[in-house]
């Protein structure tokens, strides 16, 4: 079969126009499948006719024909319609919603921050208050001690015994105010140095003949006491008072090498 002559006969143009008989249509279809040139020729003819006819179109703008077709065929595309109408509204809502939530979030953050600042302010104030209360308490007890001391000093019944520095500790000193009726002494240890780590001062009541020391206890609060005045029970008939440096906890008998101060009760 002469393909070229077949194409040139003009039958393919009529095929695309749709004016051939059913038998001719079938013949062309089968030849198209066998010969790619024939198929290509048909495609080209069709394409040019589509363009020619389309150029006559009035292109009625503004009318959505396909939408009308879909509506008539009952295609389920309500979604698109709803969206196209609701879109601007939902956009507006979305933007407003976002804006509102951002403002709210910022507000919450600010409040939270403010709250934290206030909390720490309160904490600072509370600490300051505690500090002041402690100071007041300290002052009160200092005042009480001072008052007690004044009473002691003014009391005629009180015996004053100065303790002098001994040996290597000649530069140290202390004073004992002995209230015999109340069976207590007040030790003014202002003239003693801070005891080294692990050591404490121990106060002794002494009988002189024979020399008999009796422990009145250790001064555990030496470092922390501001006034360095210590009230100590003393029921002994003391003839002298001495202070030695002992290992923490105190000793049974005084360590004489570490005797700091010593003073004899003057017989009045």
């Amino acid at each position: 079969m002469d393909i070229k002559a077949y194409i040139e006969s003009g039958i393919l143009e009529l095929y695309v126009a749709g004016v051939l008989s059913e038998k001719e249509n079938k013949e062309v279809y089968e030849l198209m499948l066998q010969h790619s040139e024939i198929l290509q020729e048909v495609l080209d003819i069709e394409s040019s006719i589509v363009k020619l006819t389309a150029s006559v179109s009035q292109k009625t703008s503004g009318v959505d024909t396909f939408q009308a077709i879909k509506n008539q065929l009952g295609f389920n595309d309500n979604d698109t319609k709803v969206i196209s109408i609701a879109q601007p509204k939902s956009n507006w809502l979305t933007y407003t919603g976002w804006a509102a939530s951002i403002v709210l979030a910022a507000g919450l953050l600010w409040t939270l921050n403010k709250n934290n600042t206030l909390k720490s302010d309160i904490q600072v104030a509370e600490t300051q208050q505690e500090l002041l209360e402690t100071q007041i308490e300290n002052s009160k007890s200092s005042l009480e001690e001072a008052n007690t001391l004044i009473t002691v000093l003014r009391d005629d019944n009180i015996t004053k015994i100065p303790l002098a520095g001994q040996g290597n500790f000649a530069s140290t000193y202390a004073k004992v105010y002995w209230d015999k009726t109340s069976q207590r002494i007040f030790l003014d240890a202002q003239g003693l140095p801070e005891p080294p780590e692990g050591k404490v001062y121990q106060v002794w009541s002494l009988k002189l003949s024979p020399l008999t020391p009796t422990s009145l206890g250790t001064i555990d609060s030496f470092t922390t006491d501001a006034n360095k005045i210590f009230e100590i029970e003393n029921a002994n008939e003391s003839e002298a008072f001495g202070i030695t440096l002992e290992p923490a906890g105190g000793s049974e008998t005084p360590t004489m090498e570490q005797l700091y101060t010593l003073g004899v009760v003057s017989v009045s």
Partner: peptide, 13 residues
């Protein structure tokens, strides 16, 4: 539809 609407519109019009 989109491929042929203009062509058909032309023929019909």
């Amino acid at each position: 539809y989109n491929m042929y609407r203009d062509s058909m519109q032309g023929v019909i019009y």
